[in-house]
């Protein structure tokens, strides 16, 4: 997956990413051999059911996996050749926010309650070696706050004096203060009401375009994803099972899991019955053989329990990890 999408240059090339959690009952592969290339200036959405490893993947890119978890393998190479996963602790610290920034999920409590917003942002900038007089930095802070739609007065307020939406805006302002190339947003609006959600996503998109940054957005809200993302990746059991443009994924999903996921999006036509995906989510400690999804898959064949599929390009720019397509693939290849 190295050729560009929409003529964009690759920014971060993730390959073979593995994150394991050591539990009493064995090792859980929370992120399982994930390959993914993120392009400069794109908005990439990551979806998948609870426990599929989305947060774990984001934390791995920030190098914030805590015991009992660890990054068991893989690479995440930036366009300049830096491998995020090979940096030492101080290099990691300097990379955070400068190259990879995070927009938190729980904005309610993500700001230090005893420091004013402006002071917090200045502190953060100084920690990254941004020198300058107080006035200079404060002017930058005010500029950032205005960019995210906050009044300059917000700089002198404490977090508890802001609403949830305003706090999230302040967090976004902080996230972009050093012009990061990659912004990781893990369900950034799941704690907010629908109207505020849309406004914040709107702001995030404007900023992303302005900075020409790449956004990796994790979320459960398929509607929001469809509006925001240009490309979407689907995760199941720690594996990336399908990647494609947002229209391909929604109109023409190729992986049976994606198909079920898309058809379970509620609409007025299907009002009344809750469609879901049959079966129970898999246990990472005791994964099925072959394809992880085969026990729940309506199209599973005997081969699915034997062989593990890999991501294959099924149509230009759309990749799926399913034996059904591998067979087609093999058939056309031979």
């Amino acid at each position: 997956m190295s050729e560009s999408v929409n003529n964009r240059e690759p920014l971060l090339d993730i390959s073979g990413l593995e994150v394991h959690f050591e539990t009493r009952r064995g090792i859980a592969r929370a992120v399982n051999e994930v390959d993914l290339t993120l392009y400069k200036g794109e908005r990439f959405g990551l979806v998948g059911e609870s426990g599929s490893g989305k947060t774990t993947m984001i934390l791995a890119l920030l190098r914030m996996i805590k015991t009992p978890g660890f990054i068991a393998g893989g690479k995440a190479v930036f366009d300049d050749g830096t491998d995020l996963l090979a940096l030492n602790a101080e290099q990691v610290r300097q990379t955070r926010l400068k190259r990879v920034a995070m927009v938190p999920q729980g904005a309610m409590n993500s700001l230090n309650p005893v420091i004013r917003i402006g002071e917090q942002m200045m502190l953060t900038m100084r920690e990254h070696g941004e020198e300058g007089e107080r006035d200079e930095l404060m002017a930058r802070v005010v500029g950032l706050l205005e960019k995210v739609g906050l009044k300059p007065e917000a700089a002198s307020l404490y977090p508890h004096e802001l609403s949830g939406g305003m706090k999230q805006r302040a967090c976004i302002a902080q996230a972009i203060c050093l012009n990061p190339q990659l912004i990781l947003a893990d369900e950034p609006t799941s704690a907010l009401d629908v109207v505020v959600q849309r406004q914040i996503m709107q702001t995030l998109r404007q900023l992303q375009i302005g900075l020409d940054a790449t956004v990796l957005l994790v979320g459960h809200d398929m509607g929001l994803m469809a509006q925001f993302a240009e490309r979407v990746g689907i995760m199941y059991g720690g594996k990336l099972v399908e990647v494609g443009t947002v229209s391909d994924i929604f109109r023409n999903p190729q992986h049976p899991y994606t198909q079920l996921l898309i058809s379970s999006i509620p609409s007025f036509e299907t009002r009344g019955d809750f469609k879901g995906i049959p079966g129970v989510a898999l246990s990472l400690l005791d994964p099925p053989s072959g394809c992880l999804f085969h026990p729940r898959c309506p199209k599973a064949t005997d081969a699915c329990a034997q062989r593990e599929p890999t991501l294959k390009e099924v149509s230009p720019g759309q990749w799926a990890s399913c034996l059904l397509h591998e067979e087609e693939h093999d058939a056309t290849a031979s």
Binding site: L62, V92, R93, A101, M108, N109, S110, L111, T124, C171
Partner: peptide, 13 residues
């Protein structure tokens, strides 16, 4: 707390 996690994610010392 979330603010400690975010401070770490923001690369504070």
């Amino acid at each position: 707390e979330d603010y400690v996690t975010l401070a770490e994610a923001n690369g504070l010392r």
